[in-house]
Each structure stands twice: as C-alpha cells, then as structure tokens.
C-alpha cells in the first residue's frame, strides 16, 4: 500500500471532488494482539482516519469492531469470520478471498482433476487456523470427500513436525490440507510429510512465499498448492507490473501476496472518487458500495473494481479480486486455475 501511495503521490496525488489530495498512510503494528489492535484503531480515530486496512487476524478484526462502528471507521480486515461482514455488521469489508470460498474451489478442482477422495487436515492451535480447518472440513464433506483426519493440531513454535504428522499420514489421505498454515511453518510441514514417505497432494488456502518454500523445503515443495496473489502473468496489466517493480525497489523483495493488499487502497480511493462525501462520513461510503463500479487498473481487459460477497455475507462487503490458485514448482508459483468469487 505504501508503494502504491508513493506512486500516486508522485503522479500528483488523487483528485476527489474538486480537491487533489496526497495520500498519507498511517501505520500501526498490532503484533497480532487484539488489545494492541484496539489501541491502534483508537489512535486512528483520534487522528481522524476513516479508512483502515487490517487487522490481519480473526481476534484482532473482531476486537476492533466496536471501535470502528462507534468512531465511524470502515476497515478492510484480512481475516474471515462471517459475522464481521454480515448484517448487522456493516463497517468491515473483506480485503481478499476467504478460505471458505477458496477451499471448496480447490477441493472441487482436485477431486475432478486429480481423483482426490480422502482428505486429512492439520492446523496450528490458534484461532485462525482452527476456524479455517473447521470450515475446510465442512466444505470437503459437502463435496462428498471423506475426511480421514481432522483432529491433529500443532503449536506454532513446533520445530519438528514428524511426530505431529505421523498419525495424520497413517490415515493415508490423498490430500493433506495445511489449514491456515503460516509461511514459516509450511516448508517444515511439507518437508516432514515428504520425508515420512507421503506421496499425495498437499494444499492450503493461505498465501505463501516462494522463496521461503525454496529455502525451507527445496524440491520437496514441488506440487504444493496454495492461494496465490491476485494476479498472474496472464492477468497482470502494465500498472500491476509497474507496481511489482516499484514494490521490489522499495522493499527489496517482492511477495506475490502483496498484489492482494494493493487492492484495498485502490477500492478506497475509487469509492471516495465516486462519492466525495464519504471522505468524512462512512455512511456515505456504505451507500456507494452497492452500485460502485470502476475500471480495474491491475488487470488486462475490461475488468472492474466492484464489491461482492452477497452470497457469503448477505450484503456486499468484500472487494472483488481474482481467486488465483497456484502450484509451487522449482522456486516459483505456477497458476493452476483462476476463479471469481461473489
């Protein structure tokens, strides 16, 4: 977001109504701590900020809800609890594709194309991975897949996953789902599974980091399926390519998932352009959501920025970004398939 904001400012700022504004990003690190997330949201309110991108975990996103609603803040969490986006809640907008949207798409693809019948789930003993596991299990069962293991969990600070995975792999799944796995744990889990002789498929519904997988698991990570960023070489416009260049120059190393995050800022700016009264009044923003549509600068063709989520949340409280499912191969992600979410 900082890379995109600096770029727009360099171009002379953003015109909203009759005024041209420079974009200022106010950063706050909540360290995944709900108490700090509340403090951060209160600080945003004190500074007159009405649009917040984050928090990134379920606990934090749920914790800031009262502050956001009382202080008139729209926020774009990267966490998935449906109650944050469903009525009566109205201030949160999901900034990416949720696991309960990507999971069924991945399982259906693997069932149809790879003959997957038996699925095992393993998750870290934390709220986000556990809730992602539960919704994954539900989605797999709904597709008619047999869930052969869904009770095994691990501590996030685990250093040796062989004992964790041993009972899971004894259930002989065709697909091992690493629910909500962090980029730090994914290489070790994959490596342990392969070293224990597991030859089936491994997937997750979270975004991963190719360089971390390459360093931590090497070629053992080949074939690992995960949700990629919101872009592929086929989808990326010149603007997206330039964003990647600028991001890389600014931060040294590009992470594929960053192109998901850049969307939130674009949606905020374009919605404010559509209704300048929303600059200081988020109720105006909410009124604009249902009918809002603008060209998507990050995709080729006539792709549009628009809010979705009616089928998942009963109202439009999700940004529309492509669901890109990738397969890791020799240090890079290759696109497996692309889908859309409503």
């Amino acid at each position: 977001m900082e890379a995109r904001a600096a770029w727009l400012n360099e171009l002379g700022g953003v015109q909203i109504g009759d005024t041209t504004y420079d974009i200022q990003i106010v950063a706050f690190d909540d360290q995944k701590d709900p108490k700090r997330a509340i403090a951060g949201m209160e600080r945003m309110a004190q500074e007159g900020v009405h649009y917040v991108v984050g928090p990134n975990v379920d606990d934090g996103a749920a914790a800031v809800r009262p502050v956001a609603e009382q202080q008139g803040i729209m926020y774009f969490p990267y966490s998935f609890p449906k109650e944050l986006f469903s009525p009566p809640a109205s201030n949160a907008i999901l900034g990416m594709v949720a696991n309960y949207q990507s999971g069924p798409a991945i399982y259906a693809y693997l069932k149809e194309n790879k003959g997957v019948q038996k699925v095992a789930f393993v998750a870290a003993n934390e709220s986000d991975p556990l809730s992602q596991r539960d919704s994954g299990v539900e989605a797999a069962k709904a597709l008619g897949l047999e869930v052969v293991s869904d009770k095994v969990t691990y501590q996030v600070d685990t250093t040796d996953f062989s004992p964790v995975l041993l009972p899971v792999l004894q259930s002989r799944p065709d697909l091992l789902v690493l629910s909500g796995v962090s980029p730090a744990n994914a290489p070790q889990l994959i490596r342990s599974a392969r070293e224990l002789g597991y030859e089936g498929l491994i997937s997750t519904e979270t975004g991963q980091d190719a360089s971390v997988l390459a360093e931590g698991a090497g070629e053992l990570a080949n074939g690992f399926i995960s949700v990629g960023g919101a872009s592929t070489p086929e989808l990326a416009s010149d603007t997206m390519r330039e964003f990647v260049d600028r991001y890389t120059k600014m931060f040294g190393e590009y992470n594929d998932e960053s192109n998901t995050k850049v969307y939130a800022l674009e949606y905020i700016i374009e919605t404010l352009k559509a209704n300048p009264a929303a600059l200081t009044d988020v109720e105006e923003y909410k009124k604009t959501i249902d009918t809002f549509e603008a060209p998507n600068p990050f995709m080729v063709g006539d792709a549009k920025l628009r809010y979705v989520g009616r089928s998942s949340f009963g109202q439009k409280r999700q940004v529309s970004v492509p669901l890109v499912v990738t397969e890791y191969k020799d240090g890079a992600f290759e696109t497996l398939f692309v889908a859309e979410v409503d």
Binding site: P183, A184, P187, E195, G197, D209, S211, V212, E215, G216, A217, G218
Partner: peptide
C-alpha cells in the same frame, strides 16, 4: 522477519 532455511546437508531418507 521472514522464515529462513538452508539446503539439506545430506539428502536421502533411511526407511
């Protein structure tokens, strides 16, 4: 802040 690792020192698995 990223997870880092180095290549395997020895390849292969005792089975």
């Amino acid at each position: 802040e990223k997870q880092r690792g180095i290549p395997k020192v020895v390849n292969g698995v005792f089975n």
